[in-house]
């Protein structure tokens, strides 16, 4: 099932192109800016897209195609200089830092198995999302759940699991009346 630019637009329509839940992250991102530190600079937009696309290939089911353009278009809206966008950038930097430390390669160059392992080693699988929490909790919030939210609030993502008008997507007031396809 192919993700399209329309899906990305739909996800942005659901989640907002600016700020995400920025109401709650303004203070913390300022504090976190540069946290990956040790002289490392935060990744630019292109590097964030590359890393997030690589992570999405692990997050999304095999049946999904078009991940590259979907994630790119979604991040076009989210990486807008808002505190939430900068939170994504900082969390990606932490994922990249771990990849280079543990696997000597950027996350996009890792095999699918190694990428999966990296995220689990970071603790992002068992962590509860928290924009102000530990590394694992921030990666869960800004990377893992960011990507899962984008997919499963889009029509194609919803269809994958049986609902073409998922919560958060303004898919009209007709689908609830229809029986199963």
């Amino acid at each position: 099932m192919e993700l399209t630019r329309r899906d990305a637009t739909a996800a942005l329509a659901a989640l907002g192109a600016t700020g995400g839940v920025a109401l709650g992250v303004r203070r913390t991102t300022d504090e976190r800016r540069g946290r990956p530190g040790d002289g490392e600079e935060l990744p630019d937009d292109e590097a964030v897209r590359t890393a997030m696309t690589a992570v999405a290939e692990t997050m999304y089911p095999d049946a999904v195609s078009g991940i590259d353009s979907f994630v790119g278009a979604f991040l076009d809206g989210r990486l807008d200089g808002s505190p939430h966008g900068e939170g994504i950038r900082a969390a990606v930097a932490e994922v990249e830092s771990a990849a280079r430390s543990w696997d000597d390669a950027p996350v996009a160059d890792l095999s699918p198995a190694d990428r999966d392992e990296l995220l689990r080693e970071l603790g992002a699988d068992v962590a509860e999302e928290n924009p102000d929490g530990t590394t694992a909790e921030r990666v869960r919030y800004y990377v893992v759940n960011e990507l899962l939210l984008a997919l499963y609030s889009s029509p194609t993502g919803g269809e994958l699991v049986g609902i073409e008008n998922p919560q958060g997507h303004p898919g009209g007031a007709e689908s609830y009346q229809r029986g199963p396809p």
């Binding site: 907002g16 839940v21 709650g24 509860e128 999302e129 939210l149």
Partner: peptide
């Protein structure tokens, strides 16, 4: 929309 995202996110 940001408030809606809060309504969906478990955080």
């Amino acid at each position: 929309l940001a408030r809606q995202e809060r309504a969906i996110r478990p955080s």
